[in-house]
Design a protein around this nucleic acid. Sequence first.
DNA 1: ATTTGGAATTTGGTATTCCATATGCCCTTG
DNA 2: CAAGGGCATATGGAATACCAAATTCCAAAT
Lengths: 234, 234
Amino acid sequence: MDALAPMRAQGPLRTLRMSETAYEAIEGAIVRCELAPGTPLVDRQLSEVLGVSRTPIRDAMQSLEAAGLVVRTRGRYSVAGFDLDDVRELFEMRRLLEPPGLERLAADWDPAVVEELATFFDGAPEPGPPGPYEEYLARDHAFHKRIVALSGNSRLIRFYAIAEKQINRIRHYLAPGYEGRMKEVVNEHRDVCEAIAAHDLDAARAALISHLEAGEATMAKYLAQQQEKENPGG
Amino acid sequence: MDALAPMRAQGPLRTLRMSETAYEAIEGAIVRCELAPGTPLVDRQLSEVLGVSRTPIRDAMQSLEAAGLVVRTRGRYSVAGFDLDDVRELFEMRRLLEPPGLERLAADWDPAVVEELATFFDGAPEPGPPGPYEEYLARDHAFHKRIVALSGNSRLIRFYAIAEKQINRIRHYLAPGYEGRMKEVVNEHRDVCEAIAAHDLDAARAALISHLEAGEATMAKYLAQQQEKENPGG
DNA sequence: ATTTGGAATTTGGTATTCCATATGCCCTTG
DNA sequence: CAAGGGCATATGGAATACCAAATTCCAAAT
């Protein structure tokens, strides 16, 4: 539980509720895997650590459960686990939710957006180990999030964000061994951008799907290795 | 607020929490449009009407907000509104989330499921006005829900359920004028089933998409009419 | 009559208290 | 020594109390 620091009282701009602040603190700790899967989350303990009462903590727990980061088993809360099935489900969601953005862009062409997508990795430090993994992750997220935002569908965007958080957590779990694919990812993003710039929707969609399938394969491979390492023989 | 009746104390099987019971009561009233869009939802009032304290009510409100049925504007809760944009977004989600079930069925063929899908409207009362709209709706939901379940993707199923609830609400809002399409819907379902039975995935997907597009067009038309009626001139 | 200041009320958020159940430990008993 | 019962504790859920901010409404002043 020492992964969590007391919430600082917010300054004059305190427009955020305590429950939201608590949510972000706990969510962050879970996504960064500072709270390991299976860790029991006891509201009284969290309440004491974060310096707020149980009420906002319980609100946060409810949101975290809806976000798929916390599970309630037999009435007790704990950090959600994940396995290869989750990887499969999450990447299927990405393959479903990302293409509509491309389609919308093809329908409502905007050169500025095309240009923007191509520049997400411009000026980035040289990727690849031992490159700055966190910055790479942020740029990768920004690229895909921008594509999803093009869909103009607020529900789609919201659902995608939920899936994205869960995937991000698994990425953190697998880092740093996971850094090896950074250069390939940048190249695959470029492929998507070039197909878009060429007004070739089918090629762009295919490149995006292919990119996601490669990502899923890599994540599944590393996760299987990691799980084998932690639980030999199963 | 008279749309809500006091929650009955549950019997010995009370495994549901008060907050869940409150959620279902309020959700039901919103989906059935007994609580009109824009109706302010004041926790103290709901607490009194439903006969529970504010705490479970506020838990329910949080869930209802996540379900997209309640909005919080300037700190006040109210029943979410909807418009043509919502219809567009919701049907786009359905067109995205339903096909994976068909694909999975094509990959893992199961004659029993194919048979099951074909029988969802067997033994139904003659559809069409003034047929029993509620039963028709239930069968329609069951058909699509079954297809979605075939995907085997728990996230997809969950997201679909959220969208489905919102669409269902708009259906209730537009009923009974909406009943006219019942016969066509049954025929379109049959088209999907026949394409599935013929092992023609592409045709099944096309029939399903076409069915959803027809549903969206109908709903959009009626909603536009209704809104014009309520707010002439806009 | 309109506007403005402020007080009362409303409302949401948070803290605290109370309660029911589940869990686990220990003691008893066979 | 094993199994079962019961007591202590842990934990989540609900009720209540308290607080701050926003809204409303009334009155007074111009």
